[in-house]
């Protein structure tokens, strides 16, 4: 790696770290590129040579954050015990546990996600798709074992799970729910949703 490359990479890391701190401390909306540059100890110009815009810095942070969460979930998922519902509840609980360590960032993420450009949405969808894939894998396993009805629409179902999962961060944030309280709420939501897809024991 050339000196220039190394310098560029060092700047990038400094910028990402400064942005991460600011997003967490004062939120994404309030943070400006100027603040990021100042905190990172670089010029505004060099922020722009490493990232196109603020939302791209954010997207990069979300990407790293997601990879960390996803690899943890993926590693654990083969060892999860219990019914399909239990396994999905566990996946969500683990995610809540990880995300609640940086809840401000998660809230900023969800807020920003409703106004960001389509290219970011596309990348974000790919990440969510992988997370949904874990839910889906558990559901398919449930179908194979006869726990979940074979005619259940898994796309619809996992999307609904995801909608509920994401909206729960609101509750966690505004009602100051602990990860445990959040998991308890999730249990009730899953109980309701699974009622609709679980195969009933035939009489």
């Amino acid at each position: 790696m050339g000196v220039r490359e190394a310098q560029k990479r060092a700047t990038r890391e400094k910028v990402v770290e400064a942005a991460r701190q600011l997003f967490e401390e004062i939120g994404y909306e309030e943070t400006t590129i100027r603040m990021i540059a100042e905190r990172a100890g670089v010029s505004v110009g060099s922020v722009f040579t490493t990232f196109e815009s603020k939302v791209d810095i954010f997207n990069h942070i979300l990407f790293e954050k997601f990879e960390a969460l996803f690899s943890e979930l993926k590693q654990i998922s083969p060892y999860l015990k219990g019914s399909t519902r239990d396994r999905i509840a566990s996946l969500m609980s683990i995610a809540y546990g990880v995300e609640s360590r940086q809840l401000e960032l998660m809230i900023s993420h969800l807020g920003a996600s409703h106004g960001w450009p389509a290219r970011i949405e596309e990348e974000s969808n790919q990440r969510h798709g992988r997370l949904l894939g874990l839910f889906r894998a558990a559901l398919e396993q449930g179908q194979a074992s006869g726990e979940i009805r074979t005619d259940a629409d898994l796309d619809l179902f996992s999307e609904m799970l995801f909608a509920v999962y994401v909206r729960n961060y609101r509750k966690a944030y505004y009602e100051k729910l602990t990860p445990e309280a959040l998991s308890a709420l999730t249990e009730r939501q899953l109980a309701l949703l699974f009622e609709g897809v679980e195969a009933k024991a035939s009489a």
């Binding site: 939120g27 909306e29 809230i107 900023s108 969800l110 807020g111 920003a112 996600s113 409703h114 106004g115 609101r170 505004y174």
Partner: peptide
């Protein structure tokens, strides 16, 4: 509506 949903994640507690 998009702005409403986005802001719903960002407002202070009393506004929430």
């Amino acid at each position: 509506m998009q702005a409403i949903i986005a802001q719903s994640w960002l407002r202070p507690l009393n506004a929430e």
